[in-house]
Design a protein around this nucleic acid. Structure first.
Length: 185
DNA sequence: GCCTGGATTGTCT
DNA sequence: GACAATCCAGGCA
């Protein structure tokens, strides 16, 4: 059985939604093809965080992050890689949860064709999961509650003891323990 | 198999 | 003009 979180679920603070997103399914339908993956790693970003895009205030690129919660924020990194974020917190708060990694569930064939990489590298990174699932700039700002991109709960529930650690790959605020991932079973 | 270094494009100051 | 929440290839153990 699968359920989908409501708007209120996304309206909580990023450090709260982050661990709750673990074990949820990210379902993306592009060109009539549906791909999904289990979220295994996330990171929380707050407006008072020097590493956050919203730290310096509103801009064209991060406008979605200041919008209502439950929306998808897709941004470009290094010009070629894109990363998917889930907007959280009350509208205008500028919070988001970065989806760092997913575990492929459905649409493996499509993902392999898109990635042309070994299975273990299909979606184990922010840029990779976007490419594997087919997330692009066209999905920037879409509503996760009413679009081809959705977050669903398959009944597994989030881990009781998610692994929490410092964020990596960024140059600022690396000491903030807002990286969450599913424990290795 | 693990680690290190370089590449690459869009956005903001 | 400089920076960025990364990825991939290559080299060494």
């Amino acid at each position: 059985m699968t359920t989908r979180p409501d708007r209120r679920w996304f309206e909580r603070d990023a450090p709260v939604v982050g661990p709750d997103l673990l074990n949820k399914l990210l379902v993306v339908t592009v060109d009539g093809i549906t791909c999904s993956g289990r979220i295994v790693e996330t990171e929380a970003y707050m407006p008072d965080d020097p590493a956050s895009h919203t730290f310096r205030g509103l801009s064209l690129r991060n406008a979605v992050m200041f919008g209502p919660p439950g929306h998808l924020y897709v941004y470009l990194s290094y010009g070629i890689h894109q990363c998917a974020n889930v907007v959280t917190g009350p509208a205008g708060s500028g919070q988001a949860v970065l989806i760092r990694a997913v575990e492929p569930v459905d649409g493996l064939d499509v993902m392999r064709a898109r990635r042309r990489r070994p299975d273990r590298e299909l979606a184990n990174g922010p840029g990779k999961l976007c490419q594997a699932l087919g997330i692009g700039a066209a999905h920037d700002g879409v509503d996760l509650l009413a679009s081809d991109v959705a977050i669903v709960d398959d009944g597994v529930g989030s881990p009781t003891h998610p692994v929490v650690g410092p964020r990596v790959g960024i140059t600022r605020a690396t000491a903030t323990p807002w990286r969450f991932r599913v424990p290795v079973e």
